[in-house]
Design a protein around this nucleic acid. Sequence first.
DNA 1: TCAACACATGAATAATCGTTCAACTGTTGT
DNA 2: ACAACAGTTGAACGATTATTCATGTGTTGA
Lengths: 125, 125
Amino acid sequence: MPADSCASTGIDADRVAEIQRSLPSDETVQDLAQVFGLLADPGRLRLIAALLEAGEMCVCDLAETTGQSMSAASHALRLLRANRVVRVRRAGRMAYYRLADSHVRMLFDLAITHIGHGEGDRGDD
Amino acid sequence: MPADSCASTGIDADRVAEIQRSLPSDETVQDLAQVFGLLADPGRLRLIAALLEAGEMCVCDLAETTGQSMSAASHALRLLRANRVVRVRRAGRMAYYRLADSHVRMLFDLAITHIGHGEGDRGDD
DNA sequence: TCAACACATGAATAATCGTTCAACTGTTGT
DNA sequence: ACAACAGTTGAACGATTATTCATGTGTTGA
């Protein structure tokens, strides 16, 4: 349940309303969350990274490369497929996956280059 | 458990090993997943969007603006704080949050501009 | 000193997500 | 027709995650 604006403070209602208006729509926020969610898993990230490098690979090799079971890889690819991040090409009993032309590709690249790795200290907690 | 390379296919072991070498390290993949995970929630996305617009806001107004309880907002901000996405400035009993200078800001902007909203059809499933 | 306030937090519950297992589809070669 | 294979899938289980509730901390003003 949404809280009321701060009772005694002066800095509230108008500003809140103004900023609220500038926020992306519910639908946009949902979509963003979903896209980011796709990238929030190591297994899926590795699949994407592998495809980024390889161009095209079959499920079995993808599984091996990314260190997961074929079942896990298949489930992951299914998700990525449903969200148009990857595309399949079927040939006989093989299924070759490649990255679809999508923003995810860019997000991944941007993230990986910008996390140069200034790691090591934490804010608090 | 990792699967063996495809038994009969010729396109396996060498290529797999080569691409495996080009994959980001385990640690990098973990970090990436975590950052994307932070952005994979509507509540947190709205907080970030609000701060992107407002520059600085107190928790109460943030909660109101983003449509969540103060407790939920506080928990979310705590997470973002721990991951150096936001920073606090305390003044009396108020806590003013702002975005920390981080890649998340860029990821958000890039994602929001590149999901122009060519939505409407799904791959399969 | 007391009460209202802004915020933080731990614990519990509910919801979501990933992994595995077992079974199933369709293909290839014998 | 049969067996081995590449891949898919559903259901079940375990783990992670979000949300709520109740309480706690420190601050302000009467």
